[in-house]
Design a binder for these strands. Structure first.
Lengths: 352, 352
DNA sequence: GATTAGCACTCTCGATGCGAGAGTGCTAAA
DNA sequence: TTTAGCACTCTCGCATCGAGAGTGCTAATC
C-alpha cells in the first residue's frame, strides 16, 4: 500500500461520501486538479480494487468503496474529527437553555444529534447495570400511613406510600427497616425477592414490594430507547426506492436496532467512540447502515449510550466529532447530577 | 339516494377497502353474484359519481371512493362495529398479563392497537388539563434534611428531598406547610409561581420550587406522545413509491401528527370515537390518511387519547371496534387507579 | 321507464428496442 | 512508470406498441 494509493483511496471515499455517486477516473482527476492522468488513476484504482478496498457496481461505472474500504478509511485516513467550533457552540447553547430532568436531557441529546448530523440518532438514559439496594427508611406519617423511602446505590431515590392494616409506631418501623437494611444491602431486586419472599408477615411483604419496585424500575429503564431523525436516512438517495424505504423503517423502528446497538456497545468504555460499519456481517438488515456509538456517564456507576445511525456512506469524521462532543456533554451532566443529587435536592434554602 | 344505490356504494367501498384496487362494473357484478347487469351498475356508478361519492382515477379505470364517499360510508353504512370476540379476548389477555405503571399501560395500549389493526397507533397518557395543587407536607427527617410531599388534585404524588441551610424542627415546618396549603389549594403551577415568587424567605423559595415542579410535570406529560406501527402504513400499496414513503414518515414522525390528533380530539368526550377522514381539508399532509380517535379516562378528572392512523382506505369498522375496545379497557384502568391510588399504595399489609 | 347487450373509444401498464453517455481495460508509445 | 488512444460494455432515459380493462353511449328488450 503506497502512500499515493492511500491518498487516492482517501479522496475517492471522501468524494463518494459527499456526492453519493460512483467516482470515475476522468471526473476525479479534473475535480481535484491532480497532476496525474486519468489512465494512471485507473491503474491505481484497479490495484485498490484488487486489494479489496473498492468495487464497481457494473463494468462501466465508477468506483465505490467496499466495507473494507470504509473500515480502512475510518482507521487510517481520518484526520481531525473534532466537531467544528460553530456547531459546538450551537449545541452547548441548546444544552444551557433549560434546567431539565435527566430523562429530558437524553431526549435533548438525541434531538440535537439527529439535527446536527442530519442522520438518525439513538440514545438510552444512563443506568447502572442493575440497580442495587442501598438502604430504606420507613417514616410514620399517620397511624396507618407510612412513607417508604428507597435509596439505591448510585443515589436514585424512590418513594411509596403504604397503608398498614393496623397502626404501628415509628420505633417498630425503625426496627423493621434496620433489619431490612442489614439483610439487603448490595442486593438486586430479584435477589431481594428470592431472599425475603418466604418470610412471614410484614417483613416478607415489604421485601416483596421493594423487590417488585426495583425490578420494575430496571425494566422501565431498560425499555427506554430514544430514536429520532429516521427521515434523514430515508432521504438519502441510496434508499430512494419504495421497498427499500419500507425495510429501512422496519429495521430502524423495530427491535433490530436495539439489538445492534447493545451488541456494539458491549466493549465500549465511557467516553470512547465505536464505529460499526455495515453490520460487520452479523446483521443482514444492517448491511447498508453504519453506526457511530459512544458511551457516556460515570465509569462503574451508571452509563448510557448515544450515537448516530446513517447509511454506510456517512461523513464519519463529522459524525464521530458530533457523537464524541455530545457524549462528553452528557457525561458532564451525569457527573454533575451525581454530585448534586446524592439523596438531596440541590436547592439552597435559607431560613427567613 | 335510493336504497339500491346505498347498497352499491357500500359494496364498492368495502371492495375497494379490501382489495385496494379500483372496482369496475364487470368484476363487481361477478364478484358479488348480483342479479343486475354490468351496464346497470355502470349507470348507478355514474350517478354516484355525479353525487360526489365516487371518482375514477382515469377514463378507463374502475371507481374509487371520494372523501365524501368514505364519510357517507362511515356515517350511514357502517353496521356492527363491535370488535370480534377472539380479538377482544386476545387483547384482554395481554392486559391481564402484568401489573404495570400507568405509563406502561399506555405503551401497551399503543402496541396492542398497532398490532391488531395493523396500522399505526398513537396514544397520550391520561392527564388533567393542568394539574392543580391539593396539599403538601413537610417532614423533618434529619436536622436539615426535609422531605417534601406534594399532592395534586387527582391523586398524583410527588416527593422531593430538600436540605435547609439551618436546622428547623417539625413544628415550624408544619406551620409553614399549613400556610402554603391555605394559600395554594386549587391553583396551578404557574399561578402558585405568580403568587408566591415575590414572598421573602423560605416561603417564597418553597413556592418557587413547588411551582417549578408542577410546571415541569405538566410539560413532561404534555410531551409524552407514543406512536407505533409506522411500518404498517408504509406497507400499503398506495404509498409504494419512494418519495411518498419519505413524506409519510415525515408526517407521522414529526409534529404534524400531534397537531392533527390534538385538534381532532378537541370536541371528544370520554368513551366516544371520532373519525377524521383525509385531513378534512385542514391538513394537506394528512390528505391521504385517516384517523380513528377516542378519549379514555375519567370525565372531568383526567383523560388521554388513543387512536389508529391509517390510509384513507382503512377498514373503518374494525378500526373503530378496536379503538373503542382498548379505550374502554384503558378507562377501566384509569378508574381503578383513581380509586386505588388516592394518596396511598394499594398494598394490603398485615402486621406479623 | 328501467334494464340490458353491443360496440367504439380511452387510458394504463409492461415489454421491447434504441441511442447517448460515461467509464473501463488494454495496448502501444513516450 | 506514465500517458494517449481506442474498442468495448453497461446503464439510463425515452419512445413505441399491443394487450387488457373499463367506460359511455345507443339501440333494443322486458
Amino acid at each position: 500500500m503506497t502512500l499515493r494509493r492511500q491518498a487516492i483511496l482517501g479522496l475517492v471515499i471522501r468524494s463518494y461520501i459527499e456526492k453519493g455517486q460512483p467516482v470515475g477516473s476522468k471526473a476525479f482527476v479534473e475535480g481535484y486538479g491532480l497532476e496525474l492522468s486519468a489512465a494512471t488513476i485507473r491503474n491505481e484504482m484497479a490495484a485498490l480494487e484488487e486489494m479489496g478496498y473498492l468495487t464497481h457496481p457494473h463494468t462501466s461505472a465508477g468506483r465505490i468503496p467496499t466495507e473494507q474500504g470504509y473500515r480502512y478509511f475510518v482507521e487510517h485516513l481520518l484526520g481531525d474529527t473534532e466537531l467544528p467550533l460553530p456547531e459546538q457552540l450551537k449545541i452547548r447553547h441548546q444544552f444551557h437553555q433549560a434546567r431539565l430532568e435527566l430523562d429530558q436531557w437524553v431526549r435533548l441529546a438525541v434531538a440535537v444529534l439527529a439535527h446536527t448530523t442530519r442522520k438518525a440518532a439513538v440514545a438510552t438514559p444512563p443506568r447502572a447495570r442493575e440497580s442495587k439496594f442501598k438502604h430504606l427508611e420507613l417514616i410514620s406519617l399517620h397511624d396507618t400511613l407510612v412513607l417508604l423511602v428507597l435509596v439505591l446505590q448510585g443515589g436514585t431515590v424512590k418513594q411509596e406510600m403504604l397503608t398498614l392494616d393496623q397502626p404501628m409506631d415509628q420505633e417498630s418501623l425503625s426496627r423493621l427497616s434496620n433489619q431490612l437494611n442489614a439483610e439487603c444491602v448490595g442486593l438486586t431486586g430479584s435477589q431481594i425477592g428470592a431472599r425475603l419472599a418466604a418470610r412471614s408477615g410484614l417483613l416478607g411483604q415489604l421485601g416483596e414490594l421493594v423487590s417488585q419496585t426495583m425490578i420494575n424500575m430496571d425494566a422501565r429503564e431498560a425499555n427506554a430507547f430514544y430514536r429520532e431523525g429516521l427521515v434523514h436516512i430515508l432521504s438519502e438517495p441510496e434508499f430512494a426506492e419504495g421497498e427499500q424505504v419500507r425495510q429501512m423503517v422496519q429495521t430502524l423502528e423495530g427491535p433490530t436496532l436495539v439489538d445492534v446497538v447493545m451488541a456494539a456497545a458491549e466493549p465500549l468504555d465511557v467516553g470512547s467512540v465505536q464505529v460499526l460499519i455495515g453490520g460487520e456481517g452479523r446483521w443482514r438488515e444492517f448491511a447498508e447502515l453504519s453506526l457511530v456509538l459512544s458511551r457516556y456517564g460515570v465509569e462503574g456507576r451508571a452509563s448510557g449510550l448515544l450515537g448516530v445511525v446513517g447509511p454506510i456512506r456517512m461523513p464519519y469524521d463529522y459524525a464521530i466529532g458530533a457523537v464524541r462532543y455530545v457524549s462528553q456533554l452528557m457525561s458532564d451532566l451525569v457527573n454533575e447530577w451525581y454530585v448534586g443529587h446524592q439523596l438531596e435536592n440541590r436547592v439552597r434554602m435559607s431560613r427567613s
